[in-house]
Amino acid sequence: MSFLQFDNVTKYYGNRPALQNVTCGMEPGRITGLLGPNGSGKTTMLKLAAGLLQPTAGRVLIGGAAPGPETKKLTAYLPDRVSLPRNFRASDAVALFADFYADFDAAKAVEMLRSLGVEASQRIASMSKGTQEKTQLCLTMSRGAKLFLLDEPLGGVDPATRDYILSTIIRGYTEDATLVISTHIIGDVERILDDVVFIQNGTVAVADSAEHLRETRGKSVDGIFREVFACL
């Protein structure tokens, strides 16, 4: 049974359709890749699941319930931008997460931050953008959430950081958690994916397991992606 379910979801921004009749499900204990070009609707899907947007039509269900404070308790959302208040210190961010999320492991977060060279008293504003993004990632992956929504976690990072992020994600995996990662750079991430969902112009183009795609099409997911989106 899917933990995160999109039921015929349509989302319009004014007159512009961002998603049209999207139906798909993400299972617990699996890492799903939401793959598509920029502007295809991946971020919109994640924001709908995170409860930051309301669908124009259709339903988004998390564990059978509509997104709200109850689902937010078990959802860990990593946006594609830095959202920590600039005047926060690293310690403030840890304290905020610890205060509002019962599943947050503060000790783990502090340890991860320390290994990245982030001091507790450092202000977010004084960190480089890369460090800010890594701080957000540490906080998110220190949650024991049932649903992880990671929006472009590998955007614009160097290969060493990319490996660090991927290994953090793999280590954060648990059998009862549903992990959804959105990206438009597939080559880096495809080996950690169980399932893939291709989003094109707000609709689902392909939805299958990564291994099945490799076996049946004899190509990498990246290769298949380039085929599917070749006309763009």
């Binding site: 290994s167 995996y173 950690i192 169980d194």
Partner: peptide, 14 residues
């Protein structure tokens, strides 16, 4: 499993 998967850079289920 998780540690091996992290080392290899692959999905733990795989």
């Amino acid at each position: 499993v998780r540690e091996l998967a992290a080392q290899a850079g692959v999905n733990p289920n795989t």
